[in-house]
Amino acid sequence: MDDYTVTFEPDGSLSVTTKKSTGTGSWTVTGDTELEFSLREDFNLDVTQISPNGHRAAYIRIDITARHDGDTLTGEGKAVVHGPDDVVIYGTDATTEARRVS
């Protein structure tokens, strides 16, 4: 699992940063301890990201349903990787585990 920083804004927007990508998206509360979020994460231009099936990846679309317990957020969903021409390269299950930082 890659390290990342995600910022959930009060207006329902979010941003994510990794060593090789940046992205934006949105989130919404769906229950007392549940939320859903969706984002598009674009690979940095200086990163050549090659998919497991050998194609160059340009961005990834991620949709997650998550639960929070105190300062921990865990979730599952789908990730769909797209090439530079927007064609879907492949899809996979996605999981996340995050901790709140001050």
Rank of each mutant, 00 (worst) to 15 (best):
P84C: 11
E9T: 12
F8S: 04
V81K: 04
E36V: 06
P84F: 14
S15V: 02
H82R: 05
Q49F: 11
I50W: 09
Y4H: 12
V101G: 10
T28C: 00
S15H: 07
V6C: 03
S13R: 14
N44W: 07
G54F: 05
V29G: 08
V87K: 13
S102N: 15
H68T: 07
A98V: 10
D2M: 07
K19Q: 15
T65F: 15
H82N: 07
D69R: 06
V6M: 07
T24W: 08
T72N: 09
G12I: 05
R100L: 01
T17H: 12
D32I: 13
S15G: 04
D86Q: 12
L39E: 06
I64Y: 02
D85A: 00
S102K: 15
V80W: 13
V47D: 12
T72M: 06
T48F: 13
D3P: 02
T30W: 04
D71S: 03
D3L: 00
V29P: 05
D85Y: 04
F37L: 08
T5C: 01
A66Q: 10
T48R: 14
T74A: 15
T92N: 15
P52I: 12
L45F: 14
E97C: 00
M1I: 00
T33C: 07
T92K: 14
D3T: 02
S51N: 04
L14H: 03
D3I: 01
E76D: 10
P10D: 00
R40K: 05
T17P: 03
T33H: 11
W27E: 01
F43R: 01
G91N: 02
V101R: 13
D46Q: 11
G77C: 06
G12W: 04
F37W: 09
T33L: 11
W27T: 04
R56H: 11
G77D: 07
T18L: 07
H55D: 04
K20V: 10
T5Q: 01
I50M: 03
R67D: 07
T7N: 04
E36K: 03
G54T: 05
A94M: 09
H55W: 09
T24I: 10
G75Y: 06
I62T: 08
T74P: 10
G25L: 08
V101S: 09
F8W: 01
A98M: 12
K19S: 13
D2H: 08
N53S: 15
Q49V: 01
K20G: 05
V81C: 12
N53A: 14
Q49R: 14
